[in-house]
Design a protein around this nucleic acid. Structure first.
Lengths: 379, 379
DNA sequence: ATGAAAGCGCTAACAC
DNA sequence: GTGTTAGCGCTTTCAT
């Protein structure tokens, strides 16, 4: 076979012995230089580096991994979607992983994948990773059965406590606290209660938001309206909006993501219920267009970068110190961004004069407020 | 050191010799079984598989890579953004790569990264990949200098012909053809010309769309209005919209992505120019909310999956047959999705009676059409 | 159809 | 500070 990275009949990539020969040192010394080990004189180091440069030497990772038992790589399990949340998290993870000097391997579990999470993790293990990040896991039916037997540290991002294993760390996203902030914002505005358009409940992220909504409502002694479950898509938000529009009691809706909120708003508008005059709507994610739709969307921004950074710091720590205690979790800040899709509820209309039966050109939308470029309100 | 993937003082992972011993065969036979090599009797195969199962054997990839000189992995260079286009492409690539039996390694070049593309590719080469996918490259200043010296096949997705190297393949995205389709749609509706809100010109994808727009206009003998350059963000679309709104000649705008189109529409609406009555707007990407914003956006859907699939097929082919001719490129289909943001231009207003000076409640938006769930029009 | 021997290029442990 | 000696767990080549 051709040697190293050399393809076709090429001479073959230079190895560390070659560098050693050119530099006039032993092969081990070359290894020392490239691993930044102590006890190499500056002079020798230079000679080695020069020789390597001249030869175009690049060390062979397979050999390194084989000899050391470590691959210096971290695997990520993602859902195979371009949804804003998961995609942002993945990018955040990539950014941090590179800084830590690890390489990144990616595998995804598609929803409905027969192998599911276990399969994805297994494939990562096959590749030989030093640690695993599971991003936004979903609850595959039957997946609970095997509690994920792995011998490398695992970091779970965007889920509360799904897996039982001694090596598992959690990078809480605090979505429940964020959801609470949303509900409280709406309650503060004077809404009697808040409806919830939930995400698919197989996603821990969706469950989390539902939980936050539920507990906030309970904490304030409000009654809990029935939950509608969407699938994250604007289409499902639209469908939910048609239902909700028919109910005059609905004055405030918290959608589990911005896409659904946008679909929802459209359905409400078509039904003649104006946002925010008649109904307030809050989304979740702060997708790039959230400030520019009509009306600009009140939503929650998640600190993906912070979460990725904090989580990976702990994962790398666990990899480097197998026996050590896990670093304590830190909760990311909540960022509620108030724009124009929320306001106090309309005055109670007397029963019998249902607001949505009032004649109004369908789809008319309220005057705009200027969209803002930056997070306007923090709490 | 602990053996294989075994961490802490654990017994160490089983190796193929262990399996061989249990199965009562030679180690080589185990290797044969796991590589699906011929000449293993069904009986022996079963025994080996059972033994492996029982021991929890998983083969060591580092050793495999070292011995064979191939890592069976493909590296991807992405921008570190969660933008819909790049993120979708990445997911498409992931999906296909897994099917081909390769592992995926990801590295990103952030815009302005000093090391840039060369650094990202180098880091992939260090990791030892059998092939490289460069997704949506951007034109780093000075990056042209080094023509990307690599000895593995490279697939470039979403760019025309940026790099010179014998091993480079192109997975054209046909964005220029798509841009032409957009312009022709608008021209067919009767618009005198089409303005273009371009993406950042360091992106090949943005250049591509600009090219398509330009050539379509030329082909139809229309004059080419000045181009405004945005940065893909809705905010930049909004800024562009404020400029464009002041010019009564503008009746049709092609934005290089949906986010900018949405910002643009908002700015136009605030300036009293209705979409689509006064100005038609077309986006690009068909982001998930495109059908649900106001008005539902006419846009172009890119066949990310097809592109990823076709491209990777060729990449894998090149990897497996080093000397062979590259497979011919195939252009993906163009998918123009006509929704409610485009219509024929308003009748020419006599000079002096500028439409946008007409009193109108700012931000009023036209009645909706029903959003559609599926691509409505193909061409 | 199966096995024995010889590395792949590096790191680890210990000597000098 | 530097070199020597063994492997790491597989694939390869060649016998059988």
């Amino acid at each position: 076979m051709t040697r190293g990275t050399g393809r076709d009949g090429s001479p073959g990539a230079p190895r560390s012995v070659d560098v050693a020969r050119v530099a006039g040192v032993s092969q081990k010394t070359v290894s020392r230089v490239f691993n930044d080990e102590p006890y190499v004189s500056a002079d020798v180091r230079r000679r080695v580096l020069d020789a390597a440069e001249q030869l175009g030497y690049r060390r062979n990772n397979a050999a390194r991994a084989l000899a050391s038992g470590r691959t210096r790589s971290i695997g990520v399990v993602t859902l195979g979607t371009a949804l804003y949340g998961p995609a942002s998290l993945l990018m955040g993870v990539e950014r941090v992983v590179r800084d830590t000097g690890y390489a990144l391997r990616v595998v995804n579990t598609m929803e409905g994948d027969p192998a599911g999470l276990a399969g994805a993790v297994g494939s990562l293990l096959d590749q030989g990773v030093d640690g695993i990040v599971i991003s936004e896991p979903i609850d595959e039916p039957g997946g609970e059965a095997e509690p994920l037997r792995v011998d490398v540290p695992v970091l779970v991002l965007g889920a509360p406590q799904p897996f039982a294993a001694s090596t598992v760390l959690f990078g809480g996203r605090g979505a429940d606290r964020m959801a609470r902030a949303v509900v409280e914002h709406l309650l503060d505005l004077g809404h009697a209660t808040v409806h919830h358009l939930a995400g698919p409940q197989r996603w821990y992220a969706a469950k989390d938001r539902l939980e936050g909504w539920r507990s906030a409502l309970a904490a304030h002694g409000r009654d809990e309206p029935p939950v509608i479950e969407g699938d994250w898509s604007a289409a499902s938000g639209y469908a939910a909006g048609r239902e909700l529009a028919a109910d005059p009691e609905v004055t405030a809706v918290f959608a589990a993501n911005d896409d659904m909120a946008i679909g929802l708003i459209r359905a409400l508008a078509e039904a003649g219920r104006r946002v925010p005059q008649d109904v307030s709507v809050v989304g979740f994610d702060d997708i790039p267009v959230a400030a520019y739709v009509t009306p600009p969307l009140t939503t929650v921004r998640q600190p993906f970068d912070t979460v990725a950074q904090e989580g990976l710091k702990r994962l790398v720590h666990a990899i480097d110190n197998p026996q050590a205690q896990a670093l304590p979790a830190s909760d990311p800040p909540v960022d509620l961004i108030v724009r124009a899709s929320t306001q106090p509820p309309p005055p109670r209309t007397p029963p019998g004069r249902r607001r949505h039966s009032v004649s109004r050109s369908p789809g008319e939308v309220p005057p705009h407020r200027l969209p803002e470029k930056d997070p306007s309100t923090r709490r």
